[in-house]
Design a protein around this nucleic acid. Structure first.
Lengths: 176, 176
DNA sequence: TAGAACGTTTAGTTGTTACTAAACAAAGTA
DNA sequence: TACTTTGTTTAGTAACAACTAAACGTTCTA
């Protein structure tokens, strides 16, 4: 492979690595996905080792995460004991999977604790003076509403599915 | 302050701390914001030290980040050398500020490098075989389009502004 | 001018995370 | 059975991020 080809691909791989780490995932995960994404054929674990420079162990764990999130798919070939992997190309599908993955996690738990605070305030718990209770209730409720709105938005994204950019553009127009 | 009151507030503070760290910010930042958010009056740095348990240094740096992101506002009192801070209560405003902050950062840079890859492929750089070039171009373009869509969505969020939940609900209905 | 009140900066500590290297397990093949 | 091929798990490492404690620089006040 010529130097220029390698460099173009390398640049792409590094770009996805950066995006990955930006969103709080390991840089290696981004690299693995990138390599698979620009590969015409599914790759084995050893091919991934070769093309990413990571070790088998790292590939093994990152590949598992990627598969769990639906960003890549395992491909098994009959009579071949190796595992192969290919990238998922429907990003909306992937996003839905990622959001689902992240749900039920610390985030939802944290949001729940805010809601809990609200209901305690509303049900009269705690020896708050009337004015203080009113103040706190209003603030915490506003925050809780805000989380609800965010929730709606993320589930909207989940539903974008195969609709693609056209739909999003439409939505944007509606939002003026 | 009675134990129950303290506990309710503490629960709220811990909730926001969790949310903060979930989104990749220091836990302390969430705690500081939480304390300010449920305070009827602006608080000084020392009051924040007292109520969060963090040290002055930590408060100092975190408060600066929060202010830069527009999540809190400095309040100066005439004839008082202390700095006071109050929470921003318009979350949509805050989100817009945060997105703006995060932009021009690693993320945009990374996305740019993907776009760069695309334009190199399209302009015929690199000694790719025709079929390989077509394949790569298609894949990288799909990814680039996807980022554009995400971009549109985030700027849509920015624009939600004071519209609130009602608008979002409307959008959701349109998305079916 | 000395000292106090504040906020910032710095050095050092702690905890976390993604990784490597290597041991290990499982399953096929000679 | 022994050996090979494959993937997983574990122990250790290096880098990093958030924090504490304390030194520091300013600005106000006596």
């Amino acid at each position: 492979m010529t130097d220029e080809k390698t460099q173009i691909k390398q640049n792409f791989i590094e770009g996805l690595s950066g995006i990955s780490s930006f969103w709080g995932f390991p840089k290696g995960m981004g690299a693995i996905f990138a390599v698979l994404y620009i590969s015409p054929a599914p790759l084995s674990l050893d091919e991934l080792v070769e093309q990413t420079g990571l070790t088998k162990g790292a590939i093994s764990t990152n590949v598992r995460s990627l598969a769990r999130m639906g960003l890549i798919r395992p491909v098994t070939r009959l009579g071949d004991r190796k595992d192969y992997y290919e990238a998922e190309t429907d990003f909306y599908k992937s996003i839905r999977a990622i959001l689902k993955e992240r749900q039920n996690s610390e985030f939802d738990q944290a949001v729940a604790s805010v809601r809990e605070t609200l209901s305690k305030l509303e049900s009269g718990q705690g020896a708050f003076a009337p004015a203080e209770r009113a103040f706190l209730t209003e603030r915490v409720r506003a925050l809780s509403d805000f989380f609800s709105a965010l929730d709606s938005l993320t589930s909207a994204i989940s539903r974008l599915d195969g609709l693609g950019i056209g739909t999003i553009q439409t939505v944007l127009k509606i939002l003026k």
